[in-house]
Amino acid sequence: MVTALHDKEIEAKARAMMRETIGRSGWYPALSGKARRELIERDVERHWHLMIPGACKRLEQRGG
């Protein structure tokens, strides 16, 4: 159970980090509003796993 909770926390952190990275990168500059958010969420869904190492590191640094 603890592992499952830990995995969910890592996934949530990795998704948040990917969302932030994409948002700061200026992806989809021709789009705004809902259309841009939908494409960003699609990309977060596809690529969040790439942020797992960074998410683990951040969670470890905070002691959680």
Rank of each mutant, 00 (worst) to 15 (best):
I10D: 04
W27M: 10
R46N: 05
E11L: 06
E41Y: 01
K8M: 06
H6V: 08
R15P: 01
L5Q: 15
D43S: 07
T21E: 08
R42C: 00
A16Y: 02
T21A: 09
Q61H: 07
E38D: 14
M18T: 11
G26K: 12
C56F: 03
M1S: 13
V2I: 11
G33D: 07
R37K: 13
R37E: 15
G23N: 14
W48F: 06
G33F: 03
T21G: 03
R37F: 01
L59G: 04
W48N: 07
M17Q: 12
A30L: 08
H49N: 11
M17S: 06
E41P: 00
L50R: 15
G54Y: 03
D7N: 11
C56T: 10
M1E: 14
G63S: 12
M17E: 12
A16W: 01
V44E: 09
E11C: 03
R15I: 02
R42P: 00
H47N: 09
W48P: 01
G26A: 08
H49A: 14
I22A: 06
E20V: 00
E11W: 03
C56M: 15
M17D: 08
L50Y: 06
R37M: 08
A30G: 02
R58M: 08
M51W: 03
C56R: 15
L5C: 06
V44I: 10
K8A: 07
G64H: 14
R58V: 04
R42F: 00
R36G: 01
R42E: 05
I40M: 10
C56L: 14
P53I: 12
R37W: 01
M17G: 03
I52E: 11
G33R: 11
K34G: 02
W27Y: 08
K34F: 01
T3K: 15
K8D: 05
E60K: 15
M51Q: 15
G63T: 13
W48I: 05
E60R: 15
R46Q: 09
I52H: 05
E41D: 09
P53K: 14
V2A: 13
A12C: 02
T21L: 06
K34W: 03
E9Y: 02
M51L: 12
A12L: 07
M17A: 09
K8R: 09
R36F: 00
R19Y: 05
